[in-house]
Design a protein around this nucleic acid. Sequence first.
RNA 1: GCUGUGGUGGUGUAGGGGUUAGCACGAGGGAUUGUGGUUCCCUCAGCCCGGGUUCAAUUCCCGGCCACGGCCCCA
Length: 444
Amino acid sequence: MVQRPRGTRDFTPQVMNRRLAFEQLLENCARASGFNRVQTPIFESLDLFTAKSGPGVIAQLYNFEDKGERQLTLRPELTAPVMRMIAEEMRNDTKPLRLSYYGQCYRYEEFKKGRYREFFQYGVELIGASGPLAEAEVIALAISMLDACGLKDWQIRIGHVGILKGALSGLGLSLETPTGASEPPVASAMRFLDKGDDAGLANLLETNGIAASNAAPLRALADLEGGSETLGPAREILSSLDGVSLEALDELQITLDAVVALAPAPPSLAVDLTVARGLDYYTGMVFEVIVPSMGGEGQVLGGGSYKLLHLFGLPDLDPCCGFGLGFDRVLLALEAQAVAEGREEVVPGESSDKPMIAVIPFNIDVQKVLPIVGQLRRSGVRVELELRGRKIGKAMGWADSIGADYTFVVGPRDLEAGNGMLKSLSTGEQTAVALDAESIANSL
RNA sequence: GCUGUGGUGGUGUAGGGGUUAGCACGAGGGAUUGUGGUUCCCUCAGCCCGGGUUCAAUUCCCGGCCACGGCCCCA
């Protein structure tokens, strides 16, 4: 028996129903904010991802050579392909572009709950507009989506890489990687701050000719916690440091104010200046959403402002802003929440559908009912036709188990009388209805 | 990359060096040749793969594969 490859999943009709409903819900949110869907290929040139993330990423790629000896790879993420698409197809489109995307991505790594080798990502990118208002639009959309799907237990953390970075470089730490080192001193400092390694931080400052006394205010800055009220203390700390600009802080303030006006209030919002997203192409505001109950795999969404389009010859469009949403993880969180609340419905609206009617021809020529089946379907009613010639009792059981709302039985007697028996499976009531689609539809 | 636990019909499980490998759900058929979600009967279908120990392995040992966890990492 051939099994599905490691780290992949099959989706049964019941599961797929839910996934489609979730995708539709996200899509509706995106469209309400003017974001329109695009789609890119499942495989791309290997260069696309090594250019963005460096040669180290190959270890986690499903890369291969095609029959024309081209170096290709299954896509590990969707931002780079969308950037590529913009450069190739959308240079002359009116800016800004508001794009959304959804699809599977592939990473060769160990998988766990909420982490698979084939996983699904939903995301948006706002291209050709930057600044605090553009950032607020993106954050607000993320909040709206999580709000719309009914998730309750989540936290959004918003930061700005420019603030710590500005403070550190303002003190005199270099943004350039020295020869022989693996990362610039600024990045090392941010890592020390994030991990709480104060000794390492002080040491780093001293070896770069900066007074170690500066470590304390930096630590205080990194440790600030809370909502937008933390910006006041942050301002005081930054003002006390030499050569540090307050510009990034002012921008973050504008962004936060705009988000409050644009989006529903999230369950928990925290300003956290150490949100680093680990990636050096993020240049401004960064944010992420955590579902605490999911533990180690609890980050369900991440994004921010980044500079990538210069890699495609479009530096004028940098920086852009966007986020990626872990489709599978949010769904897992919703499923866990539904179980905890003893609720059947996991994604809002997943089970609301048009009524379904099971048409059961009984000891008659099936041809007699086919036109009605076709007409009902065209008029928007879901119709399933009994295909196995079951006896009447079995047929009723079949109709029940496929989730039909009604049965419509047509036997010899009915045919003679020119009608059929329409039965509601929920109430058990049964009435004779004329043998035409309109009469049946009106009786539902 | 490190590490823990586990793999018995389609699903969930019991058992265990020699067994007709048990049960439940499921699916198909029948009791019931015009009415379902209750009952009864019948049928279908299983010891992950390879090697080793043994007279004998589904059971014990090793390896692989797969699954589920905890770290590391995460574009």
